[in-house]
């Protein structure tokens, strides 16, 4: 439940932002980061629809890569579990 996904801000409207992660678009609340200067193209980590912290582009990309590896592992495990 405490998993967070790095996303890039595409558009900002008040406390709401349109964000993207590897082609997936989501509406994200910036309410918890309202005291942080945020701009389009910035990266944030998103948990249950809320941005909880800013991060750098490099950190976002390396986290995506590592999450991808994890998901691939989990998919593999799930297949193995199904067929066992």
């Amino acid at each position: 439940m405490c998993l967070g996904i790095p996303m890039q801000i595409v558009a900002i409207d008040g406390y709401n932002a349109r964000c993207t992660a590897k082609g997936v678009m989501r509406d994200v609340s910036l309410f918890l980061l309202q005291d942080e200067p945020l701009a389009v193209n910035d990266y944030v980590i998103v948990h249950v629809g809320y941005a909880i912290q800013k991060m750098t582009e490099q950190e976002a990309h390396s986290t995506w890569e590592l999450l991808d590896e994890m998901l691939a592992l989990e998919a593999g495990e799930a297949d193995a579990a199904e067929s066992s």
Binding site: M1, C2, Y15, F31, L32, V48, I52
Partner: peptide, 16 residues
Amino acid sequence: AGFETTTAPVAAMLLE
């Protein structure tokens, strides 16, 4: 239900 990470968004929801 949730820990602090999930409860903070619930607080934000109420305040908004």
